[in-house]
Simulated scan of single mutants.
Amino acid sequence: MVKCIGVLTSGGDAPGMNGAVRAVARTCLNKGIKVYGVRLGFQGLFNGDFIEFDRTSTRNKINLGGTFLKSARFPEFKDPEVRKQAIEQMKKVGMEALVVIGGDGSYNGALKLTEMGVNCIGIPGTIDNDIPHTDHTIGFDTALNTIVDALDRLRDTSSSHQRCTILEVMGRYCGDLAINAGIAAGAEIIITSESGFDEAEVIERLKASKASDKTHAIVVITEHITDVNQLAKNIEVATGFETRANVLGHMQRGGRPSARDRVLGSRMGIYAVELLEAGKGGLCVSEVSGKITGLDITEVLSEKRVADNGIYEDAMKLR
């Protein structure tokens, strides 16, 4: 039976990570398992930057955004020698297994450690919802609500000034944020990597909208598709709509986690400990049709998640 487990957060922060860390810590303590928090992700694992948790360590953390364990990019972890040194740091405190909370890069690190004899379980913590085979990732719901709130505010001023407003949101490889936010906020146009981007088509649709006495418009677009400031200029010249571009940026990552993310993080954290207690590694925790389960990390990493075509088709019916 495992006697000591570590937990770290890696990659981009996501609201709800603290709830997952708290759940790992409290589940371990309730089972008599020693538990350490690892500061600064895999970098902290390499440096031996550990905090032994007790019952008070995760008190008043579930409601906080970001990650109190902090996160850091550490590409050096790809080097097997660096991983060996990290394992030696774990051995110094008796840490036998690890819970890794993050995205696909974090999953890769967890898989490599498992292959070297240290059981690891991944938990999907990323606002983009871009991890395959899970209904939702921790942080997605909070980020989505942040975007919808921003769109509601932008619509107020767009309507007042009869403008077209473009909002660029995160989700480079998966358009779930843009599609769901666009539907929820009643956007006229939603552009994602899955939908493709045709500037001429966008302009024609906005021309038609303006001709139908529509006095304002909202366009939601995922990042890295086009220069939104230049797009705004082109739309204004072609349609006569005064147009403004906005980039929401890292505001999408911050803020107190929604109830949905707090509960999801808690359930996933509990299950991760149960998997390690059963002697399993190389798995990631997923939500499938509302049920928490464990899947092979290799299988998950072999695919790229894209936005649900059904959701996008529904969005097109509402325009």
Score class of each variant (00 low, 15 high):
134 T>D: 02
62 I>V: 15
80 P>H: 04
25 A>G: 03
29 L>F: 05
33 I>V: 13
89 Q>E: 13
55 R>P: 03
102 G>S: 08
154 L>W: 06
36 Y>H: 14
66 G>P: 13
90 M>R: 04
93 V>T: 10
81 E>C: 01
37 G>A: 10
78 K>I: 13
94 G>K: 10
106 S>H: 09
107 Y>V: 10
30 N>D: 11
91 K>R: 14
91 K>L: 09
48 G>Q: 08
78 K>T: 11
68 F>H: 11
82 V>L: 08
26 R>M: 13
64 L>W: 08
104 D>Y: 00
116 M>H: 09
47 N>A: 02
108 N>P: 05
43 Q>G: 00
66 G>V: 11
63 N>W: 08
109 G>Q: 11
45 L>A: 05
114 T>E: 05
80 P>R: 07
86 A>K: 04
57 S>G: 07
100 V>C: 14
31 K>S: 10
76 E>D: 13
45 L>I: 09
101 I>F: 04
162 Q>E: 15
23 A>H: 01
104 D>N: 14
75 P>T: 13
68 F>G: 02
77 F>T: 04
48 G>I: 10
58 T>D: 12
126 T>N: 02
58 T>K: 06
71 S>H: 00
74 F>V: 05
67 T>E: 03
137 T>F: 04
25 A>F: 08
124 P>I: 08
131 I>M: 14
77 F>Y: 13
22 R>K: 14
37 G>L: 03
160 S>C: 12
80 P>K: 06
87 I>S: 00
125 G>H: 02
39 R>A: 03
50 F>H: 07
157 T>S: 15
38 V>N: 02
59 R>Q: 14
81 E>W: 06
140 F>I: 07
99 V>W: 02
95 M>P: 00
148 V>F: 09
158 S>F: 09
86 A>D: 06
93 V>A: 09
119 N>W: 01
64 L>E: 15
115 E>F: 00
116 M>F: 08
97 A>I: 10
152 D>V: 14
113 L>F: 12
29 L>T: 01
112 K>W: 11
55 R>H: 15
99 V>H: 01
146 T>Y: 02
65 G>F: 11
161 H>M: 11
43 Q>C: 06
98 L>Y: 04
111 L>K: 13
88 E>Y: 06
93 V>P: 02
155 R>Y: 14
35 V>R: 04
109 G>R: 06
119 N>I: 06
78 K>W: 02
24 V>F: 06
133 H>S: 15
37 G>F: 00
59 R>N: 13
56 T>V: 05
73 R>I: 07
83 R>N: 01
22 R>W: 10
121 I>G: 01
24 V>G: 04
75 P>M: 13
158 S>G: 15
50 F>W: 12
141 D>T: 12
49 D>I: 02
83 R>K: 08
